[in-house]
Design a binder for these strands. Sequence first.
DNA 1: TATTGTTATACTCTATAACTATA
DNA 2: TATAGTTATAGAGTATAACAATA
Lengths: 152, 152
Amino acid sequence: MNPEQLSEPLASEQCANKVMEVLPVVMKFLRAEMRSHKSSSLSVPQFRALAFLHLSPGSSLSDLAEHLGVTKATASAMAERLVQRDLITRLEHPQQRRQVVLTLTAEGLTLLQESRQFTRNKIADILSQLPPQELQAVETGLAKLGNLFMIS
Amino acid sequence: MNPEQLSEPLASEQCANKVMEVLPVVMKFLRAEMRSHKSSSLSVPQFRALAFLHLSPGSSLSDLAEHLGVTKATASAMAERLVQRDLITRLEHPQQRRQVVLTLTAEGLTLLQESRQFTRNKIADILSQLPPQELQAVETGLAKLGNLFMIS
DNA sequence: TATTGTTATACTCTATAACTATA
DNA sequence: TATAGTTATAGAGTATAACAATA
């Protein structure tokens, strides 16, 4: 008999249900907080793009697209908006003229750091309702989930 | 001395960092899976809307907006798309003529169930790489996170 | 007057397809 | 020819503001 057809679900399926149920709700909170940050707000993908360029300055557009898990067309449009807002620079690579070199501006770095701290604090406020042991459980669970889904 | 200014971060802030780091990546996977489901794909918000109407048939637009955490304008546009695709019906409430009555169609129910099973299986496939104990840790952590962020 | 819902507008994310320029 | 990136196009999510209809 196939376990899927019995009343007792697999543990992995139960856990998958939790992923489907919980993640969208918390993501919505995350998005709203990042969006609400003073005049200069960031979307979650924009935040991730800036964070990536902070860690890997001088990345190409393909690098960025790969990291974000989007197509190059999508990454190109995103980069264009960030250039327009003076949060990143996009220069031609001196040797490989096909490639672009993406780098955070000082303004981009400042906004990244402000936004990160602001959002972290908002989330931490909510999380601090948990007793230390449960907080640890959440962090551990997320870390394991992250290891599984973050290839790089 | 203020703990935020020391090198040792608060546990809640560490955990918040994990939320910011992990959630977008897993969400992207979730979104891609739901989107890839045969010809008739659903976005995550659409999936959530159908799931809500399955649990609470006959809800009003305001109910839906409230549940999804979006404005009524956003919910109205979403509902319109679902009506166009014959996944829900939108009727006038017989007594309260201001309100609409939203209900899943048979087609909507089928797609919801197929999509849920398909996506759950895809996520469970990944999760099943974890040993049982760690799987349990992930589920527990998500459950706690969910309790915190899901008011209703 | 307050509430329900829609419409208009604008912006971002996202993909696919077609394209240019470079290697 | 293959790769890097852009542009055109389309559709969805999202908000704000203005509005109509109803209670």
